[in-house]
């Protein structure tokens, strides 16, 4: 057990040292500014994340005009909310329904709608998901504990170009009395990738 931990530790130390050396070299040569690197990291830690996408989804559920716009021109509709950042330059929204379930992948690398979902989770970037999503999407969904009804067909979107996909999940049951803000709290990151469906809200007494 100890030797395993030690292996991991020395591995991390090695890459940590190499990255540190690279950053200092690039700084010395004037190719990067370390404060700017901090800013970039903090942007994705604090400002840009799945809360952006959840806002888009909740608005699509409550605002008919926005919903129509999202179907017709997702880029303009999403940008109108201020979510214009990189890896969201060209957007497409795909809407789940009882008949159709959408699933987003990038088999060739890790294309992901950063502007609305932030940085991708490790599983999204890793070989098990990237290899299996296109050939066995039902198996992938089972890995996430999702089992679709028999009549639901699956549409997989392989992000091979610069178009980024946002899944608009179905609005959960028992949420008629919730406003946009409360609804956005129910939207999970995975439901906007297509690896989760949203559970009905607890019935209010």
């Amino acid at each position: 057990m100890h030797s395993h931990d030690d292996d991991d530790h020395s591995h991390l130390t090695d890459i940590e040292a190499r990255v540190r050396a690279l950053e200092s070299l690039l700084g010395e040569k004037g190719y990067i500014n370390s404060t700017a690197v901090d800013e970039i990291v903090q942007t994705y830690e604090k400002k840009i994340g799945p809360q952006n996408g959840a806002h888009v989804v909740a608005k699509a559920w409550t605002d008919k005009q926005f919903n129509d716009w999202l179907r017709k021109d997702a880029t303009a509709a999403i940008h109108s909310l201020g979510y214009t950042s990189r890896q969201g330059e060209h957007m497409e929204a795909v809407f789940n329904s009882p008949d159709t379930h959408h699933l987003v992948v990038c088999t060739l690398c890790s294309c992901y709608p950063w502007s609305v979902l932030g940085l991708p989770p490790t599983w999204y970037k890793s070989p098990p998901y990237r290899s299996k999503a296109v050939i066995d999407p039902r198996g992938v969904l089972a890995d996430f504990g999702v089992h679709l009804p028999e009549h639901t067909s699956i549409e997989v979107h392989d992000s091979t170009a610069e178009i980024r996909y946002l899944v608009i999940p179905e609005r959960p049951a028992n949420t008629d009395d919730l406003d946009e803000k409360a609804l956005s709290q129910l939207v999970t990151r995975n439901s906007m990738i297509g690896t989760a469906i949203l559970a009905p809200a607890e019935k209010t007494k």
Partner: peptide
């Protein structure tokens, strides 16, 4: 990778952070 086999199931890390170590942050930012 599309269609390759043998990598096993997709395993999600619960409450996964954006970065698992500081060097990962630096690599993204750089």
């Amino acid at each position: 990778l599309g269609g390759m086999m043998g990598f096993g199931p997709v395993i999600e890390e619960p409450d996964e952070p954006n970065f698992h170590a500081q060097w990962e942050e630096r690599v993204l930012g750089i």
